[in-house]
Write a protein that binds this DNA or RNA. Structure first.
Lengths: 211, 211
DNA sequence: CCCATAATGTTAGTGACTAACATTCTTGAT
DNA sequence: ATCAAGAATGTTAGTCACTAACATTATGGG
């Protein structure tokens, strides 16, 4: 989530649809940055892009989508699939994400930061941001299950990792000096706790195992 | 999130405000269950409760709030504060939540289940559910920081635990046979990984530490 | 150059939510 | 009981996100 590569059609002459899409995205981001997300109207974005409100919704199912849609899922999923299946699902997910984000090309960082920054500073987008992880979550769950995890565990692991990732991205957006990769690493370290720091071991709760 | 004790004013005669509130909640839940959340209109809830749409918004800032508002934060926070400060923040949060939910009284379970079930089966509520953890998240962050965690780590730990908790609640709502406490335990076990299952130790990423 | 179809526009409407102001209850002090 | 202050509710009018149905214009391949 939070990432869309506007320029991944570096092929031939951009078709009309592609040009309109690019104009919508650029207009939207600019307006969001200048006057805030909540204060920007879909109609205004459309007008700035030289198009009708109706057309906006032909490109995005919702206002938030202009900010939050992204195409990075396959990379995440592949990286998770590469983790050793001996690991518990949660750790496979954590380390897969670690690996995938380590590989994000430097040139993509500015636009990612732009988007994340808007999302981070807009309270009304908090929910939308997490909702937008929905697809990614499904993809991660599928991969974990394919590698032997239970549905139950896969869902929980996916939700938790994504939450940590998003929180890490938010932190990164606020820290101009931080690099993307290292920020993600630091975030995932918080949930991938080194054994040395875990003296008591997990509280495996003998008490209330399955009613 | 996802919990509101309608009946915690077992004191004297309920005031008018309390009666209206109770009617709104009951009408809302019933309609959501019978015809679905998206298919239920605020106007309809209000009408069923014998009140105006405007009045609904005097009690709830948004439609979702009827489902998602809750008063359990203080218990969570206290339980987290009780965890040993030697533990990393993430594990303190996990085990605090474990402890707090273990203590949820049996009689509260049916209404919690009712709410969670509606939230779980309504895709358009996914985002709202997580957004509604916002306050809880702030509270957890504050407690973790008070106990010595960095802001950065506290935010990430809080986000991840809450995600796991919500995912666990969703799983519980779907499994009629499961008890609340044991469901939460199982969910948290997924992220509080036993050492025995973590042969390699955390991937502490020598590579890209701080740019 | 022409036509199938993609891209866009128009109109009309629903539903969540807000603002401003008017009205009707409650309640506590007298 | 009474009466005023304040709480609870109603009314009206409006904004904004989003959808549906149908009409129009632009584009590109034959």
């Amino acid at each position: 989530m939070l990432v869309t590569n506007i320029l991944d059609m570096a092929t031939d002459a951009p078709t009309k649809r592609e040009r309109t899409l690019a104009r919508l995205i650029e207009s939207g981001l600019e307006l969001f940055e200048r006057q805030g997300y909540d204060e920007t109207t879909v109609a205004q974005i459309a007008r700035t892009a030289g198009v009708t409100e109706m057309t906006f919704f032909r490109y995005f199912p919702a206002k938030e989508s202009l900010l939050l849609d992204d195409p990075y899922d396959p990379l995440l999923v592949a990286a998770i699939g590469r983790q050793p299946t001996g690991l518990p699902p949660f750790l496979r997910a954590v380390r897969g994400i670690r690996e995938a984000w380590r590989a994000v090309p430097d040139p993509d960082q500015p636009i990612i930061r732009r988007r994340v920054r808007i999302a981070a500073k807009t309270p009304s987008l908090r929910g939308a941001t997490w909702k937008s992880t929905g697809n990614t979550e499904q993809a991660i769950v599928a991969q974990l299950v394919a590698d032997g995890a239970s549905d139950h565990d896969a869902h929980i692991a996916a939700a938790a990792v994504l939450a940590a990732l998003v929180a890490g991205l938010f932190a990164w957006a606020d820290d101009e000096s931080a690099g993307l990769a290292s920020s993600i690493e630091r975030a995932l370290d918080v949930v991938d706790v080194p054994d040395a720091l875990n003296p008591t071991g997990p509280a495996t709760s003998m008490e209330a195992r399955d009613a």
